[in-house]
Design a protein around this nucleic acid. Sequence first.
RNA 1: GGGCGGUUAGCUCAGUGGGAGAGCGCUUCCUUGACACGGAAGAGGUCACAUGUUCAAUCCAUGUACCGCCCACCA
Length: 869
Amino acid sequence: MDLPKHYDPQAVEPRLYLLWERNGYFHEEPDPARPPFIICMPPPNVTGRAHLGHGSTFTPMDVLTRYHRMLGENADWLPGTDHAAIATEAVLVKELAREGLRRDDLGRERFVARAWEWSRTYGGEIEAQFRRLGFGPDWQRSRFTMDEGLSAAVRRVFVQLYREGLIYRGTRLINWDPSGKTTVSDAELEYIERDGNLWRIRYPFSKDGTDGGIDIATTRPETMLADVAIAVHPRDPRYADAIGRRVWLPPLLERSIPVIADEAVDPEFGTGAVKITPAHDPLDYEVGTRHKLPMPAVIDLDARITGADVGVGPYAGLDRFAARDRIVEDLRAHGLLVDVQPHRHSIATSERTGDIVEPLLSLQWFVKMAPLAKPALAAYRDGRVRFVPERYGRTYEHWLENIRDWNISRQIWWGHQLPVWYTPDGREVVAESEAEARELAQKQFGTSELTRDTDTLDTWFSSGIWPFSILGWPEETMELRCWYPSQVMITGGEIIFLWVARMVMLGLYFMHRVPFPNVLITPTVFDEVGRKMSKSIGNVIDPMVLAEKYGADAFRLSILRQMRLESQEIRYQESRCEEARNFNNKIWNATRYMLALPEGLPSAMTLPAETSLTPADRWILTRLQTTIVMIGKLLDGYDFGNAAETIWRFIWYEFCDWYLEATKAEQNRVTRAAVLSFVWNNAMRLLHPLAPFISEEVWLALPHDGETIVTAAWPDPLEFPAFPAEARNFELLQKTVERVRNLRAEIGVHPRDRVILDVPASVPEALAALLALLATATIEPRGSAGESLEEALEGVSVRAPRAVLEERYRKQVQHLQSEIDRGERKLSNEAFVARAAGSVVAKEREKLDAYRAELARVEAALRALKEPA
RNA sequence: GGGCGGUUAGCUCAGUGGGAGAGCGCUUCCUUGACACGGAAGAGGUCACAUGUUCAAUCCAUGUACCGCCCACCA
């Protein structure tokens, strides 16, 4: 064999992936005869790129799908992409701007065509990146939220919810993103802490200001143009006399507004009096509704001051922030600005565009959430939906308990256009197609002249039905029957509201079952000092670069090993990739060793007769069995970090460091090739879900059944024998080897020079031979010592200068004495003996006895040393 | 303001009611016929602080400090 000394993932990974996909290993058909294992991929933005976050959510999905496929289940990972309405539209608008165009210059049809083109051009990229990372979803089933089938499902859902009274159109206070020129849902707001000012402003009782007035505090003076009242707390003595009076509205002083009392006012904050602007503030909107106040607007969709509803004097047409400055200036000039204080507060911004969101009154479409939330809460409370880690369930619960109606209409063009039409006199017709709408309109309103609503739906509307829409709903497909619900949803904590809760609500409503029984929330990936990855800090790590540098397997292992069930963050260190690359190299070289064995590997994967197995064989088979059981349990519990750690330890520290070294002993020559290939084949299968490429490459190079490891069977611990008692003997031998090596280092023996060991005759020959090999020693048989193997091995002594041995024995005596003291102290404590569990006390006694016995032996050795030979 | 995490070796992090662990980094030795992307041997920690529960606390409870995440209309 002439394999390179270093494993080269770049030469292996793309080649194997191509093979897997071509041969359709990731594809699966619904099969009611086998248990399903389905994962719906959270659809990434169609034009997005892979980032580290995909590492922590998509790698586990791939791991689980591969694992369950190997278990023989009907496993399929259903992929797809999302049209990402606002994000895509924003990019296109920006692109147009560079060409000196605006959206309207193009017109809806051409704009949407361009969006399609853009999605197709860049749409394949993220999927190509996922392939490079070894992710193996069933690409043949890939869906796009805008494709025909899913669009039809969206229309069906909308129409049905509308007809059942759960979708309505109404004028409500919504969040307006002035730069995206669209509404944004509550869940898509991002609150940012900012330094601003708190202005105190005098609202005088008389126009000339001679009669005093009320001071209020505000952070947004420009909205005062739309004030309709001043509110105070009903029991605030300072304002008791003011309630019911009127004050003049600065700075124009052209109209007066009432002073009202409302419990919502906090007397402690500011001046205890608050201006009420129902059209531009959520709380004020509630107060306004309670008190039936008028709701004039003064900020328009361009975030400019408008005088459409109410006089705004010279401020008309000004940008909101320019207006703020002007108004403050004018207030100051009129002596109505009482005070300005710096004030840190949080501002609502749009997650997508980053612009400061304006609360505005607007006629929009909404989903009534309360009736949908109730069953979704019940499903969580009775355990039909479970979160891992559990604590995220409370986040879900809390949000659903305080849910508000969901504004679903967006004023953008890229997305699912509302299936809503209007008659010339403005009556609405909701239908799945234009033809149906006309028919309906004719029947109900006697006209077929219709105009379609120009709005599109919130992106999350189509993602909310993802778990069943991608299975062909509303058609009754085989997929839908076998694969709904899926087994687990894996995603980041930031979209529990945006997505997870909505899938549960809509899944329950349309499919009458939760879309998944388990929700696994993966940790957020930060940089190594705990900062969010961001372009502006420049700490973004690109997984593609890592895959290029270290290999996709290394990248996957680096992420998996850092995952812990309960943790909410990963501080990602690139050095983890390097470690994993080294690990892969270790695997590669162990394989090279096996392939270079002079006797060659057997052609089939079979173990030698049990009686011929050596102590080392018995030990590694036992360890393999334990490892298989452990990894199965860990993967079943989504504990990827410990699963990765477990296979890592087995391969490196047990298989390579010990077993493989032991096979260099003469005694192992007969069985080693078969055992090596058997254990390694199993180890590769255990590793495959985590590191699919190298495991396949090695598996194919070894004796194996079948054409690919992808569809190979998961290792079965009952398929081969284990020898727990003999495995323990090997472990005692390991301890002895370590003891000898330690002494060698202390004596300063050159690693290649042999030391002489006096070995009691009661140590079995096979173990003595291993000891000679692993400790680089020459064995001198000596009279027997003790009965148990443990005692016999403890009797192994190294021939070394007396001073070194003496020093060592002294240290040992010291250590043993301190352990004995501790044990004696404990056992002489009456309270301990009386109250501690019997087993604990017994264990303590055993330990003490063992230490005493060992001390006696060491002291005897020490004495023997001092006696002249 | 509320809720939830975290604080363990220089760094990143596991872990357990009864003798403190890993990887990297560091020190020493070793190119022994798989691998220097390697092997062997080591050094290094009052487990944030305080109080309590317990025979026993790094682990449980309460509080404090600091770091972080999520939620919230405090104008």
